[in-house]
Design a protein around this nucleic acid. Sequence first.
DNA 1: TACACTATTGAAAATGATTTTCAATATCAA
DNA 2: TTGATATTGAAAATCATTTTCAATAGTGTA
Lengths: 140, 140
Amino acid sequence: MTAELWLTQLHENGYRLTDARRAVVEIVEQSTRALTPVEVYDLARKKYRALGLVTVYRTLEKLEELHLIQRVHQPQGCQAFVSAGHGHQHLLLCQNCGRVEFFDGDDLDALTRYIAQKTGYQINEHWLQLFGLCMDCRKN
Amino acid sequence: MTAELWLTQLHENGYRLTDARRAVVEIVEQSTRALTPVEVYDLARKKYRALGLVTVYRTLEKLEELHLIQRVHQPQGCQAFVSAGHGHQHLLLCQNCGRVEFFDGDDLDALTRYIAQKTGYQINEHWLQLFGLCMDCRKN
DNA sequence: TACACTATTGAAAATGATTTTCAATATCAA
DNA sequence: TTGATATTGAAAATCATTTTCAATAGTGTA
C-alpha cells in the first residue's frame, strides 16, 4: 500500500497526519488517471465528508513539493495531477480515457547536444509526453 | 512582414480586418517571447488605445484556431502564446528571458515504436520541449 | 493519560483568469 | 453608399485558486 508511504513521507517532513490528508492521499495515490482538484474533492469526500476543497488544494501542493505527484499538461488543460513516477520518467496519456502510463528509456542526449550546438543554448531540462489510445480504448 | 500574412489568413477565413486585430497580430507576430493575454493587451494598447482585453482573448483564440500561434506550457503557467513554427516543430525555451526558439529534426520514431509495443498503446502524437539558457542569458 | 503548543481545518471573502451578454459600431460585399 | 452582420468594449458572470480567520485536532512531552 503506497498510500501509507506517502503519509510517512508527509509525517517525516514535519506535516501532521489528518483525516483530510489521508482521504486525499488515498484517492490520488490509487488513481490511474490525472485528477483535477475538484475531482479529488468529489472522490475524497466519499471517504471523508467534512473535507473542504481548500484543503485539497493545500494537500496537493504539499504532495507536489515532495515529488509524490506531478502536474499533467494536456491540450484541454493543465490543472490535473497524477502520482509521480520514480526517477526521470515521461508520460504517456490515453486521449480517450485519460489513463496515465510512465516510461523512461528515452535517449535525447544526441538530440540535445545537437540542438545545443546549433542554437548556442545551454540545455538543462526536457519535457516529453506521448499521446495516444490505450489498449482498452482501442477496442472500440 | 509576416503580420500581413496573418491578416490575410484571417481575411481568407472569413474574419474581418479591424484595428483591434491588426494591433494584436502585430504584437504577437513579432515577439520572440511567449506573451500572456494581459501582456498582449498592454503592448497592443500602445498601438491601439481603445483595445479591450476581451478582444485580445477572442483574437488569440482565432489565431490559435488557424495555427498561427500556439500555447506554451511552462512550469510557471500555461497561459502564454507564441507565434507557431511551420510544420512539426518543437520549442526550446530560455528559462531566464523567456525567448522561444523552434527546432525540428527530432526522430522519436524508434522510441515511439518501442513504447507502443511495450504498452499496447496506439501513439498518435508527442510533445517535446527543451528548457535552458539562451546565448545572451548565459553571459551573466 | 492529560496537556499545551501550534499546525491544520473549512467557510467565506478576495483575487485572478476567462467567458458571456449586450447594445453600439465598424467592416465589407453588393 | 448602403445594409446586413461580424466585431467591438464594458460590465457582469463564471470558474479556478489563494488568502484570511477563528475553531479544532494532531503531536510531543510531562
